[in-house]
Each structure stands twice: as structure tokens, then as C-alpha cells.
Computed example of a mutant assay.
Amino acid sequence: MPYALFCNDAQISKAYPAEADVWKLAHRSGLVVDVANDDERPGPRRVLDNDYEIKPCRAAQGEDPAKNKADAEQQSRMEPEFNS
């Protein structure tokens, strides 16, 4: 089942084949933040910024999640990445 990025239950990204693909998209978009660790986990952990979620979804009619992934990877290779 494909996954997408949601905000307040509204799908805001294309569908991608795996949850990890959406995490990469969210990270490149600046939506992933580090939060302080809790007592059970060492070091900081990464979470999505407020109101964003990654959830399973249905691909729109005619949408190909694998093509969306390939397009996103190609675009990321063409854009400079800035350290935050």
C-alpha cells in the first residue's frame, strides 16, 4: 500500500511506494525535527513537525507511486541540499 504526507487529515503529497520514501520527502521539505530523548531511548529522535503525519493512502487514479519516487529522487539530485 502506498504512503503519503498528511496535514490535518488532508493529503498534501503524492503517493509513494514506502513510508521511508515519504520520510525522505518530509526531511528535504524541512518537516522533520529532532526532539529531546526520553528515558527509554538514547540520543535525540526525529519526528514530523506539528500536525504532519505519514499514513497509508490510495494512489489517485492514474498515479504511479514508483514513478513519483523516481521523479522525487531525480529532482533531489538536481537541487542543492542545504544543511539546517
Rank of each mutant, 00 (worst) to 15 (best):
I12E: 03
E79K: 13
K55V: 09
P80Y: 10
C7H: 13
K67Q: 12
A26R: 02
E79D: 14
H27K: 15
R45K: 07
P44F: 07
D21V: 00
E79P: 00
R41S: 13
F82L: 10
Q75E: 13
A20E: 12
V33N: 04
G62H: 03
M1G: 12
P2K: 05
G30R: 12
L48P: 04
P44C: 09
E40Q: 11
N68Q: 02
D64E: 08
V32N: 02
N50E: 11
N37I: 03
F82A: 10
S84K: 03
S13T: 07
W23L: 01
E81Q: 13
K69R: 15
Y52K: 05
I54Y: 06
Y3F: 15
D38W: 08
M78I: 11
K67D: 10
A4I: 05
E53P: 05
H27V: 00
L25I: 09
C7K: 15
V33Y: 02
L25W: 01
A59P: 01
A72M: 14
Y52G: 05
K14T: 01
M1C: 09
V33C: 09
N37G: 15
D64K: 11
A18S: 09
P44S: 11
V35W: 00
S29R: 14
R28L: 10
P42V: 12
K67I: 03
A59N: 01
D39E: 14
H27T: 08
D9P: 09
R28K: 13
V35Y: 03
G43L: 07
D49A: 15
I54N: 05
G62R: 06
A10G: 05
D49S: 15
I12A: 06
Q61C: 10
Q75P: 01
L31N: 08
P42A: 14
M1E: 02
Q75W: 07
D49T: 12
Y52L: 10
A59R: 04
Q74R: 14
A60H: 01
Q75Y: 07
R41P: 00
P56W: 07
V35D: 06
A20N: 09
K14S: 12
R58Q: 12
D51T: 11
C7R: 15
I12C: 12
V47I: 13
L31T: 08
Y3K: 00
E19K: 13
N37M: 10
K69W: 04
L48C: 06
Y52A: 06
Q11M: 09
A10T: 14
M1R: 14
N50H: 12
E73D: 12
D39C: 11
A18E: 11
S76K: 08
E73I: 00
L48D: 09
F82R: 08
P42C: 11
L5P: 01
N8K: 15
A10K: 12
G62P: 03
N37C: 15
V47Y: 01
I54C: 04
E81A: 14
M78Y: 07
D39Y: 14
N37W: 06
M1A: 13
Y16K: 00
E63Y: 01
S76P: 04
A18Y: 09
Q61E: 14
G30W: 04
F6S: 05
D71H: 05
A10L: 13
M78R: 15
E81I: 13
Y3D: 08
Y3L: 00
E79V: 14
S84I: 06
V35L: 08
K69M: 07
Q61V: 13
K24M: 08
S29P: 00
